[in-house]
Simulated assay, not measured.
Amino acid sequence: MGDVAPFTGLAGRLRAAGHTVTLATHEPFRSLVEALGLGFVPIPGDLRETLERTVDGGGPRALARMFALARPLVAQLGAGIVRAVEQARPDAMVLSTLVAPLGYQVAEAFGIRRASVFLQPVHPSREFGPVLAGGRSFGPYGNLALGHVTFRAVEALYAGTIRSLRRDLGLPRTSLGALRRAQEFREPMFHGFSPAVVPRPADWHPSLRVTGYWWPAASPDKADKRLDDFLAGEKPVFIGFGSMAPGRGPELAETVVRAVRQAGVRAVLQAGWSGLAAADGDDLLSIGEMPHEQLFPRMAAVVHHAGAGTTAAALRAGVPAVAVPRLADQPFWARRLHRLGAAPAPIRLEVDALAAALREVTGNPHYAARAQALSARIRAEDGAAPVLDWLTTPYR
């Protein structure tokens, strides 16, 4: 959800400016997109199945496993993007991180202008380590070198599909290096996060822009008397892991419940894809789907997996976090929250570690103060405006 919902907000802003917008994403998100009055075209892939087989962490082993699982998905995406373009017949394409390397080829074949809309700072920089490898810093030169190594590894993941796609589209055969030089910085790459959270690196190419967040389209207020009654007591913490750990709800619940009671806090548990839930009581309430913008501002803190979307939602609400990252870009965002002072150090999901982090984040007002200061800054930004400006400029 965190990889799709921000684009519903961006799409809504584009539509409000007079554009007809179609969102191409995976089938499980059809109802979300169509309920907002946006066009929908499905693209292949079952991310639940992929996530069930991933390895925790942001190190080389986890990255290699993630790439191995992603390869079949990437192989399906090329033809899916072609079908989406043939159905929607767009004048412009805005491409997310997952589809951009393939979308560039489709845009070339159809003569469509395109830009990138990324939720993570994936391009190499001296200022931080590679996001997909966890974001740990190895110093300026180490960060840049490892960033290029990771970037080339991602390029290799797409290489076979790019070659097949170009052949099928009647495009000339060329090397990946030549394609990179011709396509990478031809049009802007917009990054939908706040410069207050990740300042734009000084060594990035001018086409790489940091815009501010693209907030998900507002949801109708969702009434829940059980939740309202529970919130009448001492402010609880939120605990939920979104799309992570599908099917591991009972295992996660045992750890979470023990930690909550050890820390002496009250908690709202959200099921997500894992099915996280526990028996309701004075200190615990289990809920299903509820928009983050309606839930997070009512919490004392938010325990989450540090995905890009959930990280943004907690910061927007001005609520401190406990980050429990699992894979991909999550360790990067978890470290970033700690560095910004809006969260304790990231933890693994273990009883003692979670209980200690809950006591720290709720007992030290510094975390809430930093989260509230960041919220004020990011709410003042208009992340969609640069994308709208690009659409109104003449196509080269």
Rank of each mutant, 00 (worst) to 15 (best):
M1F: 09
P6Y: 03
T8N: 03
L10S: 02
L23G: 02
A24H: 05
T25A: 09
V33D: 04
A35E: 11
R61H: 12
L63Y: 12
F67M: 14
A70I: 05
L73V: 15
I81P: 04
R83V: 04
D91E: 11
V99K: 07
A100W: 12
A107R: 08
E108G: 10
G111T: 09
S116L: 12
P124S: 09
P124N: 07
F128Q: 11
L132W: 00
A133N: 07
F138L: 14
G142H: 08
G142N: 03
G142D: 02
N143M: 05
V149Y: 11
V149R: 14
T150M: 13
A153L: 15
A156L: 13
G160K: 05
S164M: 10
P172K: 05
L176Q: 13
Q183H: 13
R186T: 14
S194T: 10
V197D: 02
R200I: 05
R200E: 05
W204L: 08
W214G: 11
P220T: 05
A223S: 14
R226G: 12
D229P: 05
A232N: 14
G233A: 13
E234Q: 12
P236F: 10
P246H: 08
P246N: 10
R248A: 14
G249V: 10
L252Y: 11
Q262R: 15
L269S: 02
G272E: 04
W273K: 11
S274Q: 00
H304I: 02
A306S: 04
A314D: 02
A317F: 01
A323D: 03
R326K: 09
W333L: 00
P346F: 03
P346H: 04
V351E: 14
L354E: 01
R359I: 01
E360G: 02
G363F: 01
H366L: 07
A371T: 08
R377T: 13
A380R: 10
P394S: 10
